[in-house]
């Protein structure tokens, strides 16, 4: 990949649509389903992933020439686990409510396939700038998808978006949307919609 502006722009945009980690590559499904009952935790999760992804891509990209093949995955996990712990401590210190709500799903970012996949596929082969742009694009794509999914679910489950009521007064909340079944079915329909658009594009 070249370091020119158009190429960087292409890398950035790939994460948003063509290679959107959730909708196209089906990576990182676990947090996608678990934290999208409301927009606020989804956004927190998305931002934490952006932070961890960017930091781990930077570190991996810097040490890409020093990596020994058989110790590669171990180094990746070590790097990721460190930054996830930092993100977790940060949330506990400054956003205690969100930290309580997300619970074990923050440490589970360690095994989020997106991060290890980007470290392997992009950062261990490319320079610093490309790696950072790739991380931001992928992270943003992930965050946007999470927010869309959470928006739909929060709207139908409580009649609110971002804890602000938007639907009319007599709206009967669909409790099921806030439960696991709502997560699976909303994501299924969202994926079907994206597939339909992609098929039309081709």
């Amino acid at each position: 990949m070249a370091n020119t502006a158009p190429a960087l722009k292409k890398t950035f945009l790939a994460g948003l649509w063509d290679e959107n980690p959730v909708l196209r590559l089906l990576l990182g499904m676990c947090p996608t389903l678990a934290v999208t009952a409301a927009v606020k935790p989804a956004l927190t999760m998305g931002l934490s992933v952006i932070f961890v992804l960017t930091c781990s891509n930077i570190v991996v990209s810097l040490m890409r020439h020093l990596l020994k093949p058989h110790l590669r995955i171990l180094m990746f996990t070590l790097t990721i686990a460190t930054f996830v712990t930092i993100a977790d401590l940060f949330l506990k210190a400054f956003q205690p409510e969100m930290s309580d709500q997300l619970g074990p799903y923050i440490p589970l970012i360690i095994v989020n396939c997106i991060i290890i996949c980007r470290a392997e596929a992009c950062a261990s082969k490319n320079g610093l700038v490309v790696s950072i742009v790739d991380a931001l694009g992928m992270g943003l794509g992930f965050t946007l998808t999470l927010c869309v999914l959470a928006g739909v679910r929060e709207l139908l489950a409580t009649g609110k978006v971002f804890e602000i009521p938007v639907l009319w007064d007599g709206f009967l909340p669909w409790a099921a949307m806030g439960m696991p079944v709502g997560a699976f079915i909303t994501l299924g329909l969202l994926l079907a919609g994206v597939n339909a658009i992609a098929q039309k594009e081709n």
Partner: peptide, 22 residues
């Protein structure tokens, strides 16, 4: 139906399965 093939239908099936386990 075409767009539902693969992952989408699997997710919806999984959703129904969670209802049963609830």
């Amino acid at each position: 139906p075409g767009p539902l093939r693969g992952a989408p239908i699997t997710l919806i099936t999984a959703g129904l399965l969670t209802l049963a386990f609830m």
